[in-house]
């Protein structure tokens, strides 16, 4: 056994030598800072960590962390990551993506990476706009949104990342907000710890092309009423005075005021480990302005992981048939000899 203590890593150890080139004031800076802290806390050696991204502002992320990195092509990061993790289960893999990258051009790869439940972490920076191409609407842009490619307003019904992930049988689903740094750290940490595909949506402000898209959720005066922090086993309570809650009325959530005959026990209690994803889905459908939007871990359950199963089959084949030999491979089936 080695007596060398493992070096203690700090967030700075994960800074690469590249200049960060996001626009000043971009929400990505905050996510990068929290990620570096979390990487240091998790403690996986830098050389054992691989960041994979697609195309878009968020996908520049791998250049700014001093690990192995692959800035690939639009939408394909989950597929690249599948090859990385499938071939080398010893590596820790993060996929950094955006709303257009993950949900438009890469929708198919996202869906299949999640359902396979590879042990990877997918962080989707949702800014509800195409930033890198300068301001076209994205698959998460709200109806009616005026922008460069929809001057009369968006008519494409938006997708909701967490609802998609849950529909794809995700085993870990969470949401946080770029400027809510403590919460973001916690969520990234939980994602890192989860075995299986972790899917995290981060509300991220694009201060150039879609400034204020999440102001309701970040404004000091309104956020207590427009967001709700969900925690496993705890009732859904929110509001500046923590006097409001979410109660189930049949299959539907409703906002109730505590007191006046309604106690905490009447409220919906969060269960991130529920085997069925119905509750997580219900929470993912709670949207501003009708409801406070949940942040935190929606779902965290254990299921077989593709990379583990893939490599288990290799082990089993080797155990049952022995390590393959070229001689046997060539001579398989019927052979004959010509003198």
């Amino acid at each position: 056994m080695s007596t060398d203590a493992l070096p203690v890593l700090t967030a700075n150890d994960f800074a690469s030598d590249q200049d960060v080139r996001w626009c000043p004031g971009c929400g990505d800076y905050s996510i990068l800072a929290q990620m570096k802290k979390v990487l240091a806390t998790v403690g996986t050696p830098r050389e054992k960590t691989v960041f994979v991204s697609g195309i878009g502002c968020s996908s520049r992320f791998p250049y700014y962390v001093d690990t192995y990195g692959f800035h690939s092509i639009h939408g394909r990061a989950p597929a690249i990551a599948t090859g990385v993790k499938g071939a080398r289960p010893d590596l820790t893999v993060w996929v950094i993506t955006g709303d257009g990258d993950a949900l438009s051009i890469g929708g198919n790869h996202l869906m299949h990476a999640i359902r396979r439940n590879l042990d990877i972490n997918i962080v989707l920076f949702n800014n509800r706009i195409y930033g890198l191409t300068k301001g076209q609407y994205s698959p998460t842009s709200p109806l009616g949104k005026i922008n460069k490619s929809a001057p009369m307003g968006v008519i494409d019904n938006p997708l909701h990342p967490l609802s998609i992930a849950i529909g794809c049988e995700a085993t870990f689903v969470a949401r946080s907000i770029d400027v809510n740094i403590k919460h973001l750290s916690m969520v990234l940490q939980r994602a890192a710890e989860h075995k299986g595909t972790s899917f995290v949506e981060v509300y991220q402000n694009c201060n150039v092309f879609n400034d204020g898209a999440f102001e309701y959720a970040t404004d000091r005066n309104s956020k207590a009423d427009t967001t709700i922090e969900i925690e496993h086993g705890k009732p859904l309570i929110f509001g500046k005075n923590r006097d409001k809650g979410i109660r189930l009325n049949g299959m539907e959530p409703e906002i109730v005021e505590l007191g006046k005959g309604i106690s905490v026990d009447d409220l919906l209690f969060h269960d991130e480990k529920a085997p069925e994803p119905s509750l997580a889905y219900l929470l993912s459908r709670m949207r501003h302005p009708e409801f406070p939007e949940p942040i935190g871990v929606f779902r965290a359950v254990d299921h077989p992981k593709y990379d583990e199963e893939l490599n288990k089959q290799i082990e089993t084949a080797r155990k049952n048939r022995g390590e393959g030999k070229i001689e046997d491979l060539l001579n398989a089936g019927e052979t004959w000899v010509i003198e």
Binding site: S72, R76, A79, A81, V84, R88, H112
Partner: peptide, 18 residues
């Protein structure tokens, strides 16, 4: 893979790691 694109890009990912 889920499609031809994932087929090639997964192989590229695998090549990256050896």
């Amino acid at each position: 893979a889920e499609d031809e694109i994932a087929a090639v890009t997964s192989a590229i990912g695998a090549a990256f790691v050896g």
